[in-house]
Amino acid sequence: MKIALLGTGAVSRVLAPAFLYLGHDVVVGTRSPLTTLDSNTAYARLATRYSALGLCTFADAVPDAELVVNAIDGPSCVAALTSLAPALAGRVLMDVSSPFDWSLPDAVLDPVNTDSLGERLQRALPKAKVVKTFNTLAAEAMAQPSAIGDGDHTVFVSGDDASAKAMVTELLRSLGWKDVLDLGCIRTARATEMMLRMWIDASVALGTHMFGFKIVR
């Protein structure tokens, strides 16, 4: 499968090699490839290690992709993707963003309760098929669920399109996820996005961000 990963932060640096290992064609989208290679030393090291990993602008990354992953920071992802609406029409957009500005010392969730980033993206990209997932986890756990409790924890998906959720679920299972819970329509992204505050406080209490949430039946 051809996958476009938008963003060059920690999430992208974890998922890109994992997708390559599974045999997918992966390209990373960024605002400015030259600036990324010059100033993002962590990504530059990744690019050196994985020669098959392409890097281009957001606009150039999307057209050939069967799956687009939004790994752009939450506060700026809606604005960044809105201009790509025509190219994203009909495509599955796997959204892993969080409504939290990590640059502030104690930022609040925005949006929260009555809206979500997942819903904002779906409204901004009405012809795309948005699937919310992975936003309740540390980046390192996304591609290696077995690193926490031998993989015995839950990952969630939310979205309006059943076939898009099936595609994302299949990808998650190929990464080793055993418990994938479909919460329903994209509106349910409100619930998982609001779990971020619990994730932050729990990580402080536990002294580690490597933990997961488990739905016990």
Rank of each mutant, 00 (worst) to 15 (best):
T41M: 14
L183S: 11
L121S: 02
R49P: 04
V28Y: 05
A205H: 14
N70H: 07
R31K: 09
L181F: 05
D115Y: 02
A166C: 02
N70I: 08
F134R: 02
E66I: 05
G159C: 09
L109D: 06
P126D: 01
A162P: 09
T82K: 09
G151M: 00
A80H: 14
I186F: 06
A18Q: 02
D110H: 06
V14C: 11
L53Q: 03
V130L: 10
T208L: 14
L81P: 10
A202P: 12
P145D: 05
T35F: 13
G9Q: 09
M1S: 07
A61L: 06
R120H: 00
R91M: 09
L22D: 07
L84P: 13
T82F: 11
I200F: 14
K165D: 03
V108P: 11
S103F: 00
C185A: 13
A191Y: 10
T114Q: 15
K214S: 14
A80I: 12
G159R: 12
G7E: 02
H209L: 14
Y21S: 10
M1N: 03
A18E: 01
V14F: 11
R190P: 00
V131Q: 03
A65C: 03
L109S: 11
V155I: 06
A16F: 00
L84H: 13
S146H: 03
T154R: 10
L125P: 04
F134I: 10
A189W: 04
T48G: 07
R45G: 05
D110F: 09
F156L: 12
V26H: 04
A166R: 11
L171A: 04
A139I: 09
D152Y: 13
A128F: 13
E170N: 08
A59S: 14
R120A: 05
L37D: 00
H153F: 14
A166S: 06
D38Q: 15
R123W: 01
V26L: 01
A71E: 01
T48N: 11
L196W: 09
L117M: 02
G149M: 14
T57Y: 14
S116V: 02
L172R: 03
H153P: 08
E140V: 15
V62M: 03
R13K: 10
L53Y: 03
V216F: 09
L181R: 07
K165C: 12
A65K: 01
F58L: 13
V131R: 03
T154D: 09
R13Q: 10
M167E: 13
T154C: 06
T48V: 09
T188C: 12
Y21L: 12
R49S: 06
F134N: 06
L46H: 08
D161G: 11
D115S: 05
S12V: 07
W177D: 04
L183T: 15
V62W: 07
K2C: 05
V11F: 13
R13F: 04
K2F: 08
L84T: 12
E66H: 08
D106L: 12
A164R: 12
M167C: 14
D182V: 09
D64V: 13
L84F: 13
S174V: 00
V155E: 03
A71N: 02
A59F: 05
H153S: 03
R49K: 10
C56K: 10
M195T: 15
D38R: 15
R173F: 00
R45V: 02
A52C: 15
A143E: 01
A4C: 06
A4I: 05
L175I: 00
L81H: 08
A16M: 03
A85E: 11
W102E: 10
G23W: 08
W177F: 06
L172K: 00
P145G: 01
K129Q: 11
L117Y: 10
